[in-house]
Design a protein around this nucleic acid. Sequence first.
RNA 1: GGGCCGCUAGCUCAAUUGGCAGAGCAACUGACUCUUAAUCAGUUGGUUCAGGGUUCGAGUCCCUGGCGGCUCACCA
Length: 507
Amino acid sequence: MDLSELQAIRREKVEAFRASGVEPYALRSERTHTTLEAIRAFETREAVADGADDPEPPIVVVGRIVGFRHMGKTVFAHVEDGAGRLQLYARKDELGADEYADLLKLYDLGDFVQASGQLFRTRTGEISLRVAEIRMLSKALNAPPEKWHGLQDVEIRYRQRYVDLMANPEVRRVFEMRARTITATRRFLDARGYIEVETPTLQPLYGGAAARPFTTHHNALNQTFYLRIADELYLKRLLVGGFERVYEICKDFRNEGIDRNHSPEFTMLEFYEAYSDYQGMMELVEAMIAEVTRDVLGCSTIEVGDRTVDVTPPWTRRSMRDAIRDLSRVDYVAHPDQPSLLAAARAAGADIEADTVWPRIVDELLKQFVRPRLIEPTLLIDYPVALSPLAKRKADDPTHVERFQPFVGGVELGNSFTELNDPIDQLARFQEQQRDRDAGDDEAMPIDADFITALMYGMPPTGGVGIGIDRLVMLLAGQPTLRDVILFPAMRALPSTSDEGVDSHRE
RNA sequence: GGGCCGCUAGCUCAAUUGGCAGAGCAACUGACUCUUAAUCAGUUGGUUCAGGGUUCGAGUCCCUGGCGGCUCACCA
């Protein structure tokens, strides 16, 4: 391994520690206060100012050195822990000449240290720790990124997120926000009698969405498995079994392109409620997004670009047909065949290829005319049946299903419908999908015979919802791409360096 | 997969028409006992993503490849 000059110098410092009998990777630390607790404790003592007689308790803090300034026989440094930062102040005459020399020579930015002493305020008013003793906890061999500009290189930010996190504090805040989003979501559903379940990631047959799967192989069973593209069909089996309210937060995997709104592995929330329907789920989704937003942001508004939207229910509800008709002047119901709809869509200015199938033209109209304008929280309802093989038809219009999608800030947050529980109709829809598969559509769902069997035992009327957690976090955290809310986004592997050994074996 | 753009010191970025590869931070040596992007003086540090080509001379121009970003396509 080639060492840069900086790395070589830091390794020499490790050796210098060991030569003087100090292990630079300490077995343990003895923290008494986080940096935040130390500051709070000092402020509290200060407020009771006349307690000057009380002996001040010793403070021991730990953390990473993130700033280091020395002037003459004094050192100022900042250490950072999970709670915040605290300034250290070390004097040669108080620390001792040897220890002070070590501090100057052997300690670097990025090292984890433990410092003990008394708190005080500097002349400029900053609460600081007057260091009586300092100890190396973990010597960093790589220098941190530049302190002022942080880490800018996008590729390194994603590939080496640990560097991004240590250099760019706002990134840590985004992922704290992500954690709060998921916690708030669980709390919302738990409070309503939902139970959290886990269904298979490895599935012998995939389904529940229109997508291409990842394929893998189990050696002992000598069998192909698919990584799930959705958990829908398993969760509905649980309703057949008698659970009334279930949810799952898990990774789904779809073997598709990557862009700002799509990741090959992403976190999906799905929840199903027996004896509800899409009307009930609309109210639930509105309430959930509003509550999660309050929990995460402390208010009911979200900044979207230069606009502010309020997610307080009720949201605007519009049928998909009306929305498309109003914004594109095309009524797809008046054009039930592909050539007619294609012509109308193109006349309206849509950019659509000639061989696009009818349902996808509808989808294109939605995408090109409607979606970009759904900035205010909106529920788009009632989709054509061809787009929704798992949803129940509307009673008064069998060409449409009871389905809705929530949109905020132009982002599609999820998908919901009154679940199809008629096994015969479900089988017919699967068979329709199968015809599409046979015709070469490798995203159409395969027939899941066991799921039909399950429905034949009876599934109660049910409302179901899927919410893309990553997209929700992206919206709440104001991040421009999905990759900025995924800690380790999928990246192409770098050219392997491990085959150097292979090369050396070549004749 | 197509188009456009990018890749230079550990990090952030320069480099004129093709003419000695630079600065700031970090590091190293020194000065300075209340600094905080500390300051001051000095020093070190380069496979300019890789390979090939053109040229007296390539970070710069051409070709091939790698990785990334944006965008279109695909895709909830």
